[in-house]
Simulated assay, not measured.
Amino acid sequence: MVATGSGENSSVTTVQLWSADGSGCWTAGPARPAHNARDGWTTDHHAGDLQSPVGVFTLSDAGGKLADPGTRLPYHRSASFTLDGTGFQGEPLAGSFDYVIAIDYNRTPGRSPLDTSHPLGDDRGGGIWLHADHGGPTHGCIALARPDLRTLLTALDPAAHPVIVMGPANFLSQ
């Protein structure tokens, strides 16, 4: 999967799922609109910087407040996947964590996305997820429309070792 924004300071992103056939040919799925962090992207992410980390990260676990929609990823359902209040543009945040896919930035794969241990240290931040879009920028996550998120949840196969490549287009083209 590729999540890319138009510039380093942009919070507007496009997410695209790519799949390989048996011969190694890659096919791109539809480009889907999304949001990333309010202040864009960084190669040196830290807690509270309001930027999304740039890099290639595995996708190993999922979860949410709602029942498993049929993902093959380990799914952790909990009422703790709750977010209230409003976003940076006054948009309601309720329901944003109904479904999430953990992006393995500063987290231990195989644990619930709610796990707060951070192998790189708490100052490097954590809790970077794919989650439902609330209509505005995030703190560091990638947010896409709920139907698109459900599609990803059911499409990702842990046997294929899914990853997300994320960052601004100029960085990813290097």
Rank of each mutant, 00 (worst) to 15 (best):
Met1Asn: 11
Met1His: 08
Gly5Asp: 01
Gly5Glu: 00
Ser6His: 03
Ser10Trp: 03
Ser11Ile: 00
Val12His: 14
Val12Gly: 11
Thr13Arg: 11
Gln16Pro: 08
Leu17Asp: 09
Trp18Leu: 14
Trp18Tyr: 13
Asp21Arg: 14
Gly22Asn: 13
Gly22Lys: 10
Cys25Glu: 11
Cys25Met: 14
Trp26Pro: 07
Ala28Asp: 13
Gly29Asp: 09
Ala31Trp: 04
Arg32Tyr: 03
Pro33Gly: 10
Ala34Leu: 05
Asn36Ala: 09
Asn36Glu: 05
Ala37Thr: 02
Ala37Asn: 12
Arg38Gln: 03
Arg38Glu: 09
Asp39Ile: 01
Asp39Phe: 01
Asp39Leu: 06
Gly40Val: 02
Trp41Asn: 00
Thr42Ile: 02
Thr43Glu: 08
Asp44Met: 13
Asp44Cys: 12
His45Lys: 15
His45Thr: 01
Ala47Pro: 14
Gln51Gly: 01
Val56His: 10
Val56Trp: 11
Phe57Pro: 09
Asp61Met: 08
Gly63Phe: 03
Lys65Gln: 10
Lys65Tyr: 12
Leu66Ala: 11
Leu66Pro: 15
Asp68Asn: 15
Pro69His: 11
Gly70Arg: 05
Thr71Ser: 08
Thr71Phe: 10
Arg72Thr: 15
Arg72Ser: 11
Pro74Arg: 05
Tyr75Thr: 03
His76Ala: 12
Ser80Gln: 12
Ser80Cys: 06
Ser80His: 12
Phe81Asp: 02
Leu83Gly: 06
Leu83His: 05
Gly85Ser: 03
Thr86Lys: 15
Phe88His: 14
Phe88Val: 04
Gly90Arg: 05
Glu91His: 13
Leu93Phe: 09
Ala94Ser: 13
Ala94Pro: 00
Gly95Asp: 03
Ser96His: 01
Phe97Asn: 07
Phe97Met: 15
Tyr99Lys: 00
Ile101Val: 06
Ile101Asn: 03
Ile101Glu: 02
Ile103Val: 06
Asn106Pro: 14
Asn106Cys: 09
Asn106Leu: 09
Arg107Cys: 11
Thr108Trp: 02
Pro109Lys: 08
Pro109Ser: 08
Pro109Tyr: 05
Pro109Gly: 07
Gly110Cys: 10
Arg111Asp: 12
Pro113Glu: 00
Asp115Leu: 07
Asp115Arg: 06
Asp115Asn: 04
Asp115Met: 08
Thr116Val: 09
Thr116Tyr: 13
Ser117Ala: 14
His118Tyr: 12
Leu120Gln: 11
Arg124Ser: 07
Arg124Phe: 14
Arg124Gly: 05
Gly125Met: 07
Gly126Asp: 11
Gly127Thr: 10
Gly127Ser: 15
Gly127Lys: 12
Gly127Tyr: 06
Leu130Ile: 09
Leu130Thr: 05
His131Arg: 08
Ala132Val: 01
Ala132Asp: 03
His134Pro: 00
Gly136Pro: 13
Pro137Trp: 00
Pro137Arg: 01
Thr138Met: 08
Thr138Tyr: 05
Gly140Pro: 04
Ala143Asn: 01
Ala143Phe: 00
Ala145Arg: 05
Arg146Ser: 02
Pro147Ile: 00
Pro147Ala: 09
Pro147Arg: 01
Pro147Gln: 07
Asp148Asn: 10
Leu149His: 04
Leu149Asp: 02
Leu153Cys: 02
Leu156Gln: 05
Leu156His: 07
Leu156Ala: 10
Pro158Met: 08
Pro158Leu: 06
Pro158Cys: 04
Ala159Met: 09
Ala160Asn: 11
Val163Asn: 10
Ile164Asp: 03
Val165His: 10
Ala169Val: 09
Ala169Thr: 04
Asn170Ala: 15
Asn170Cys: 12
Asn170Met: 13
Phe171Pro: 13
Leu172Gly: 05
